[in-house]
């Protein structure tokens, strides 16, 4: 996990520093409309800092014990056991996508598409949840 959170922290620090430098320079002799860019940079910094916070919490929670994929000498046996559940084919993502796209058409041609798309989307989500419920833990 170390490389992961350090990379994200690095990105966050860079964005924060860029935002500060840019803000200082704009403050000295810039243009008022550049506030948009400063805001975007500050939010980018915050987004990555949040991701860094999550990763570092995970890292501490694991008592800083490296996972098999963090160890240079790990063998396949170290990764034994269940990696995760990978679902079989499912129609519900396509249903959700169809609902979202039809709903998006509502932004062009009116609210009826939004309602129809919404119904399809909600139906697909219900199907999706039912499918997940039926799966073994």
């Amino acid at each position: 996990m170390k490389v992961e959170w350090r990379t994200v922290l690095g990105a966050s620090v860079f964005l924060g520093a860029t935002a500060l430098l840019y803000w200082a320079l704009v403050y000295a002799h810039g243009h008022p409309t550049e506030a948009a860019g400063i805001t975007a940079l500050v939010f980018s910094f915050a987004a990555y800092f949040m991701l860094f916070g999550y990763l570092v919490l995970q890292y501490i929670k694991r008592r800083r014990i490296p996972r098999p994929e963090d160890r240079f000498d790990a063998t396949q046996a170290d990764g034994a056991g269940e990696v995760g559940w990978f679902p079989a084919a499912s129609i519900w993502p396509a249903g959700m996508g169809l609902g979202m796209v039809i709903g998006a058409v509502g932004a062009v041609w009116g609210v009826w598409y939004l309602i129809v798309g919404g119904i399809i989307f909600v139906g697909a989500v219900i199907g999706f949840v039912a499918e997940v419920e039926a799966e073994p833990e």
Binding site: T75, F86, P87
Partner: peptide, 26 residues
């Protein structure tokens, strides 16, 4: 080296083909 057998769970059953595969594959 052969991997451990239980690396992941494979869902049993027939595999879809053609259009159904295109529409449903994850």
């Amino acid at each position: 080296r052969p991997a451990e057998p239980q690396l992941f769970e494979i869902v049993p059953g027939p595999r879809p083909h053609g259009l159904v595969k295109y529409l449903t594959s994850t």
